[in-house]
Design a protein around this nucleic acid. Structure first.
Lengths: 183, 183
DNA sequence: CTGTACATGTAATACGTTACATGATTCA
DNA sequence: TGAATCATGTAACGTATTACATGTACAG
């Protein structure tokens, strides 16, 4: 049920319409909590019904400006500080790794190398974003910058791991020679 | 739709009942693709309807032993090699980071330190698992060992990042001093 | 003979994705 | 005046979670 809190969190920073929120979701939040247009509008109506946000103004083209209410802020703080985060994550890429014994070592290595390249590309995109942000810092996005740093470290780790894993798969057989580096 | 392929992948290694699969999901696959008992039994019936698996034996207590079919193996290979993995992931922990400007720096630091400890604990658990596996290697789980190495690197990165991020939040104000280490 | 583990299934509910559907404003 | 953007909403479908529901076999 975190979409609810994502919306609340954005509206806590500044009021806005569903359309405004949608753009934020597609840019800064896309990598941590993707959401569709459909989901957003539905959730805003639900939040309004629950009294956690309220329509504060109506503009042209039926635009509704939403603002967080006191009850909404209370709920947001409660969630941030008292609700244990759900740390478990699904990873389709990693699920596939478990089943790589079903294909030839060559195909397995190809898969891992592709993953490595994807990670490197993602890393590069984030580096560019980080440079743009650092050159022209948005004071509202300071914590977003912490999240971006996470992304940089994550993609780097991912890339290094994929390279290492691909190397484990030798041509001598389907059994990779698992000998992790010392740590 | 990856649950389908997760089941297929497990049955490709060895045949088994829904109950057998459930235990595998709760142990080795729990960290990459969680699934519930309810989901598994439903999926097995769907897979059997689609002809990708088949009941090869019936045992005591209504036990049904499932095996992958040729069509199932074809589908598994197709998925592994030709379907682009969904790399986008949701992270509730990271979502919260975006909204840490809503609480005091102290509370923000506390949150990050807690995340760091959680990562360290997860890392420790994985280390122990890795030691057990390396001492008594299961030839069927060699690729699982690659995934475990991913987990070790991930939790370490997570822990280091959380510590770094907590340090960014000084007592002088809500703005963390973002100065990422050189890379 | 009793508790634990084995074993399977369905129903209700919630959440997410895709597609459909509509219309107003602005800018070139 | 036509295209792009702004702006909101609903319906259908698929997937995931939780709870309910039931029964068998085996070990101590």
């Amino acid at each position: 049920m975190s979409l609810r809190h994502a919306v609340l969190g954005l509206l806590a920073d500044r009021s806005g319409s569903g359309y405004d929120l949608l753009r934020t979701f597609q840019s800064s939040l896309a990598n941590v909590w993707p959401a569709t247009q459909s989901q957003l509008y539905t959730e805003l109506n639900r939040l309004a019904d629950a009294g956690l946000v309220a329509v504060t103004a109506e503009g042209p083209r039926g635009r509704k400006e939403y603002a967080i209410t006191d009850a909404g802020r209370t709920e947001l703080h409660h969630w941030l500080l008292e609700v244990e985060p759900e740390r478990q994550r699904r990873s389709e890429s990693l699920l596939r790794v478990f089943f790589l014994d079903q294909v030839t070592p060559e195909q397995g290595r190809t898969y891992l190398e592709r993953e490595g390249r994807a990670a490197a590309a993602a890393h590069q995109g984030m580096r560019e974003l980080a440079e743009r942000i650092d050159a022209d810092p948005d004071p509202l996005a300071v914590y977003g910058r912490l999240a971006l740093e996470w992304g940089l470290r994550f993609t780097r780790m991912q890339q290094e791991w994929a390279q290492w894993a691909a190397e484990q798969i030798t041509e001598r057989g389907p059994q990779p020679q698992v000998r992790p580096p010392g740590h």
